[in-house]
Amino acid sequence: MQQIFNFVLKNSNRLLFLLLLVISLSLTIQSHSYHKSKIISSANFFTGGIYEKINNVDEYFGLREQNEELAAENARLKSILFNQKDTTKLPQIDSIKGVKKIDIIVSKVIRNPYSTLENYLTINNGATSGIKPNMGVINSAGIVGIVDKTSKNYATIISVLNVNSKINAKIKKSNHFGSLVWNGKSTGFVQLIDVPRLAGVRKGDTIVTGGQSIIFPENIGIGTIDKVYIDDETNYYTLDIRLFNDMTNLGHVYIIKNKDTEEITNLENQSKKDE
């Protein structure tokens, strides 16, 4: 017993070091696994609050661009509205059911890192505003990411600039599907992989979200094809996509709340169980 005590006392620094190292390494490993949510994240009261304070000051420097962006979006929406056959009648989103399937929640990005390979944004709305994990996030220009973790008033988003993110997307013209990933190289470009060789791809074609996921509605803009090459291993096309969005400068974002998500996931889980 005495010897154990002596050993602990003599090596107290080393033991403390090893203990803390194990804790930090397990936090690191856990943060790299995609399906587990993080313990240490900026969606908590303390860091979220500080980031919001910083952002409150920061916002004033980008007011002009924000206004221009909003004006451009207004103009686009007006043009859609005026080109309806009957301008007094507002368009119904889902005319068969007569109810809206999709809700939009407006939020603001209060932290936007893009220097690492696994980038997570923080927004200043959370569970109290109805935000749940796995909701899609877009802005007026295009796709931004998917909600990862929520706290009461904040939420983190897996940015499309995250090597772990994988989003279903398609070529607008030909309806060929692929997966949207990021190779970690440039903040302006993402990659669309696994596009079949049958697909006629041309530089400049538009890439939009596919209809295969319940996270994003179909036909939300992502970017345009910048470069086409063939993957040596799989023999599929890999496309470099120039993003519509400037991911380094994000202000307000929209969170897409699909009312049918629960129904669809429940149904899918049931059929999985039956197998």
């Binding site: 936090l27 490993i29 908590n44 980031y51 983190t156």
Partner: peptide
Amino acid sequence: LLMDMFWNSGGVHAAACL
């Protein structure tokens, strides 16, 4: 650990500092 909270990086900074 505090840096990790702000940086959203798990335990990366904690391990490096340690």
